[in-house]
């Protein structure tokens, strides 16, 4: 018998082992739900699978009685739009700031203390300021994502810029490159795959701020809907929405990973950092 640390599961076993906790969790839920509903048929805390199916049908296929919209799709579209704009702006801001502060010591001396200070402020604490300045519309939600995620990406990009071997910068100089050429020709192309990695990590935080902003002031969106139906304890809607958000997050993450592999084949063998 090998030591436990040396035992590797074969592919089918690995798959089954991965699925097992999920199946157990579902079984546990069904058992608990049945038990509660047997005691009280109008219990709302743990809906049965049938109630979930009805709720999903209502939200995802049938038009809303008041507005005529199919709510799940409207919510999904507006949330994804906010997230995409917020993350795209954060990525652009983070890449630019990280590149110049990482590569140019003079700029770094000017910006770094400010960036450190700003990233120490909890973004939720300045959400009221954003509402006051930008109003309650789309802009303040995007701004919250930018304030929350931008500095994280900027600091990561700054660190990644510094990790590009010094030898390459010296080499470029011996080939006659000026500072701008080193930034655009040596550092920037090497930062792009690292930026996608950074976005993948920052997306979790992005979702957090998106849902927080929607919960507080919005008229649609996934976060808005969850917090709206909370008033009626509609667990049959909340839980499918949460699962849907998790699925969207997973699809986006995998999509970015594939995009990275496809666009930057030279980067993958460096250990996928």
């Amino acid at each position: 018998m090998k030591r436990l640390i040396n035992l590797q599961p074969a592919p089918p076993l690995r798959f089954i082992l991965g699925l097992l906790p999920l199946v157990l969790l579902v079984l546990l839920y069904v058992w608990a739900s049945d038990a509660r509903l047997a005691a009280n048929p109008v219990d709302k805390l743990l809906p049965s699978l049938g109630q979930f199916a009805d709720a999903i049908k209502l939200m995802a296929w049938e038009p809303d009685k008041r507005s005529g919209d199919i709510l799940l799709w409207v919510d999904t579209l507006s949330s994804l739009q906010r997230l995409a704009i917020g993350i795209a702006l954060s990525a652009l801001f983070g890449l630019m700031l990280g590149l110049v502060t990482g590569a140019l010591p003079l700029v770094n001396a000017g910006f770094s203390p400010l960036l450190t200070l700003i990233s120490l402020i909890p973004p939720m604490a300045i959400l009221p300021i954003l509402f006051i300045v930008f109003g309650l519309g789309e802009l303040s939600k995007v701004a919250l994502i930018l304030v929350g995620v931008g500095p994280i990406i900027a600091r990561d990009m700054q660190r990644q810029t510094r990790e590009i071997p010094f030898e390459q910068l010296v080499k470029a100089q011996t080939l006659g490159a000026n500072s701008l050429q080193i930034l655009t020709g040596v550092l920037l192309p090497q930062l792009l795959p690292r930026l996608i990695g950074s976005i993948r990590l920052a997306l979790g935080t992005g979702w957090l701020f998106l849902i927080a902003a929607e919960a507080i002031a919005s008229t649609d969106g996934l976060g808005y809907r969850i917090f709206l139906v909370r008033r009626y304890m509609a667990m049959d809607i909340i839980l499918p929405y949460v699962a849907w958000i998790a699925l969207l997050a997973l699809i986006i993450d995998q999509g970015l990973m594939r995009l990275n592999r496809r666009l930057f084949p030279w980067y993958q063998s460096e250990g996928g950092r």
Binding site: E167, Q168, T174, L175, G176, Q190, Y267
Partner: peptide
């Protein structure tokens, strides 16, 4: 460094991208 003095290091002296 300038273009009149070329350099080859033990490693990292080519551009990986």
């Amino acid at each position: 460094p300038d273009r009149h003095r070329g350099i080859v290091f033990q490693q990292y002296s080519v551009f990986p991208h």
